[in-house]
């Protein structure tokens, strides 16, 4: 219980995707790491489908 309370006071944050959330957290002194993740083909469905087709070649 005590450990849980400590966790709530000192959050360690993994930010995934949009980097500006990480930048804001760092600016406020939060303990955070950034994961540079992007959706496949930048979220472009047509391109994602083409890439899937090419996997068959």
């Amino acid at each position: 219980m005590k450990e849980h309370a400590r966790f709530l006071r000192e959050p360690k944050i993994i930010n995934v995707g949009a980097k500006h959330f990480y930048d804001d957290l760092k600016a406020q002194g939060a303990d955070s790491v950034h994961v540079d993740w992007r959706p496949p083909a930048g979220g472009d469905r047509e391109m994602a489908e083409l890439l899937d087709k090419l996997k068959k070649l």
């Binding site: 992007r38 959706p39 496949p40 083909a41 930048g42 391109m47 890439l51 090419l54």
Partner: peptide, 8 residues
Amino acid sequence: IRKVVGTG
């Protein structure tokens, strides 16, 4: 080109 488009 697959990697460029796939990763963005």
